[in-house]
Write a protein that binds this DNA or RNA. Sequence first.
DNA 1: CGCCGCCATACGTTCCAGGCATGGACGTGG
DNA 2: CCACGTCCATGCCTGGAACGTATGGCGGCG
Lengths: 293, 293
Amino acid sequence: MDVDTRLLRYFVVVAEELSFTRAAKRLYVAQPSLSRQIRQLEARLGADLFTRTSSAVALTAAGRALLPAARRQVAEWQESVRLVRTAAAAERNVLRIGFAATGGGDLARRARSAFTRRYPGVTVEPKRFEWGGEARAVRDGLADVAYVWLPAELDGLCSEVVATERRWVAVKTTHPLASREEVGIGDLRDEPLMWTRVAPPEWVDWWAVNPRPDGSEPVWGPENANVEEMLEHVATTSGVCIGPESMKSFYVHPDLTWRPVVDIEPLRIALAWPEHSANALVHAFVEIVRRLA
Amino acid sequence: MDVDTRLLRYFVVVAEELSFTRAAKRLYVAQPSLSRQIRQLEARLGADLFTRTSSAVALTAAGRALLPAARRQVAEWQESVRLVRTAAAAERNVLRIGFAATGGGDLARRARSAFTRRYPGVTVEPKRFEWGGEARAVRDGLADVAYVWLPAELDGLCSEVVATERRWVAVKTTHPLASREEVGIGDLRDEPLMWTRVAPPEWVDWWAVNPRPDGSEPVWGPENANVEEMLEHVATTSGVCIGPESMKSFYVHPDLTWRPVVDIEPLRIALAWPEHSANALVHAFVEIVRRLA
DNA sequence: CGCCGCCATACGTTCCAGGCATGGACGTGG
DNA sequence: CCACGTCCATGCCTGGAACGTATGGCGGCG
């Protein structure tokens, strides 16, 4: 009897929510589809997993037996994927360095140079991910090591803060704030702020400084998935965006002006890599970054 | 990223055979289908698992990394299925006793009576399986305990031989051998013998006494999946079949005559149950059978 | 040099996950 | 007591994926 890990994930969520409707929302599928899939899983197992009434859903003994096993299966498959991708990269003798936007900034370039000098035979593959995707990339085996912007979910990863950067705000060159030398977070009270749905809410809130020191919530502007989209929005709509100082020099844009925001905490940049990594190149790279930091 | 355990099984077989054509045969699918599925798995992993030329297939580093993980995943899912089914049965307070054909014979009935006397609240569910399917049924969680006819694959199971039965041969009442009191295996030299493809070859060979003491191979008759089919064939074609003594009294058939085969080894019947079974009823049942044996 | 074995590609069919609309059971509040 | 809302199940349709058959391309071997 075969299963798809997707079915197991579905089952786990229904078991956690004890509601098909809520679970369907969390899984971004329609409730009827979810109902049918679970029914099918039950049919193939030859055992009911839930008792359903129109007012309550509960696990059966069989369901309780499956829940931890299903969680484990899903986790182990994720781990297998990471292993396979890591092995493929190792065979090609490459080191894949993940980052989002400007990643580790200047430190990253110095580290890469030092690493290439030390290991001339190894190909370095910089891998750019969307907002908040660096840590997941390492977990999923799409990168061997990554510069991660905190806050971030670092479960299953080793990490070390290697740099901090002050945060700046980008505004259109014609914007009143463009004439100021520096700004405070209070000055951005009524400015629509860029945001993204690809990163978790905590990440978005941290960048948006939400709630603001005065307790207010930012005004939300257009949504975007990466730097380029974000800067395009700022350049052509009425909003502003906040980014690390390095963004000013990495992404030049004729219509934008960058100004430091002096009264908010700086960005902390961590280097992250998988726990139990057997990849010697990763450890060598970590050591190099650590020395340069 | 999701996978079906079916895909993992496919991958394992290709990795074992190092040939898509041979693997496809073993898996009972067409070779192009198998090729495509493996390609798709590679695409989703973002890594090649095999290097293919028209003359050889070999694992890549990624493939070598996946192989043990895939084997483990498949095995763990099998185990999960068993757990779930066992839990469902336990919740209904039933004991599912697996067997094929006459199973444990007279012992089985005495054991069931004794068990029911001792545990009047427990429902006993006898579960009949096809030739050689009893042990697999326990492994798959379709039965809690089973009478298994040896030889059988008992990996992952505890077992204990609890009975033996002489083997008899069934012939049409009009058959020359029907007039004999008893027969030897040599007398069956030219008689077409029933066989099955649902049980493994070793099982079939053991029942057929293949090779025969004189080194010859039996003449093969029609194929069947269970007792009823087998006896129907014997009653209506020219073949014979061999079965345990209890079959004579459990399956009465007007056109058949049973005669003992005096010079072949008897059937050994084992009781088998899952290793690490936490089911108290199983252990109680085993104890009862052991005492009666 | 021609045949054969092996993997890949093309095409048509079948099946299933997914979405939307709706039905039926239950609980709640007016 | 009824009306309404909530929740799970069912019916119907669509798009995609898996499978089979037929066929192409490539390398090895007689």
